[in-house]
Design a binder for these strands. Sequence first.
DNA 1: GCATGTGAATAGGTTCACAGCC
DNA 2: GGCTGTGAACCTATTCACATGC
Lengths: 181, 181
Amino acid sequence: MSSEELAARGQTTAAQVRKDLSHFGSFGKRGLGYSVDQLRDRLRSILGLDRSWRVALVGAGRIGLALFEYPAFRSRGYDWVAIFDSDPEKIGQAWGDQVVRSPDEFEKVLQDLDIELVILALPADGAQEMAMRAVDAGVRGILNFAPIRLNVPPKVPVEDVNLVMELEALSFQITQGERDA
Amino acid sequence: MSSEELAARGQTTAAQVRKDLSHFGSFGKRGLGYSVDQLRDRLRSILGLDRSWRVALVGAGRIGLALFEYPAFRSRGYDWVAIFDSDPEKIGQAWGDQVVRSPDEFEKVLQDLDIELVILALPADGAQEMAMRAVDAGVRGILNFAPIRLNVPPKVPVEDVNLVMELEALSFQITQGERDA
DNA sequence: GCATGTGAATAGGTTCACAGCC
DNA sequence: GGCTGTGAACCTATTCACATGC
């Protein structure tokens, strides 16, 4: 497959595809293009997708539930190995093969189960504390749904999903569009 | 408040704050800084947040439910005015003050209720069709949770939330970090 | 005196275009 | 002949630095 075709599929340009790939090495064959199989394998390895990841869910609310049951996570190698919630009503509940745990056990469980990723799906006021505790317990990355900017050391990557901001970005674009028209 | 202080809060630089704001006008006072109240109001207006938006939810699964019950949406002026799902079991169910509707009524309801934003929280295979139908019915913007790139006319902004990609971005950063170390 | 707003300088990222290899 | 990989050209965004106005 040529960079041209890859670009069409990825909503970008052929030159962009070639530059981006060249950043990680030389994958294609001149005159021929890229082998899809080879390219997939190389990219999976670069992206760290050729292995599974041990994930803890922090916050067993509705967003937590939706994530927990989201089949795409499991199928991509993200394995739930623990769930935490501070609500005494929820602690002890069974979620699939998991049981909701108390935050009291947080550090111990993270370490014992060798958890690498933490997904924070809890209200803003508890998020910073749990982020810090997760970092101190040795977690490698955080996916944050709480609408605050977490303060963590730079060695620990954080990805933010801010649902309100996504809607606000739409509102902005629509409002701007009206201005031009 | 000075651009310096705003920058510290927003994880950016003072020059960046001033440049960004200058793009929309001149809000500050030399020697003094910015009036927080004035700035908030002006920004809310620029971002289109000084009004409410009529939103339809497409897909009454677990992600849809989590969004529907997410209090921050309502409190920011995003009003749910319709819910759609193709599952006959779900059609007719009451969700708060709403009733889950059949996609058969989609266009009619969007138009009758003057719906401006659509949130797609359904599997990838139905998303493109519903996006097109929404656009044809006059929707102004789409928030898309389905893991596909929607093909819609450029006048209709789309924001994508791809949960798997967020996790993959973490995996990548962790894997890269290991390489440096 | 102090902090904005903005040209000028710099850095970063995208596109061009072509030599080199299949 | 066809398509990659990559310097060079270009364009956009960030940072600098200072004249301007409070």
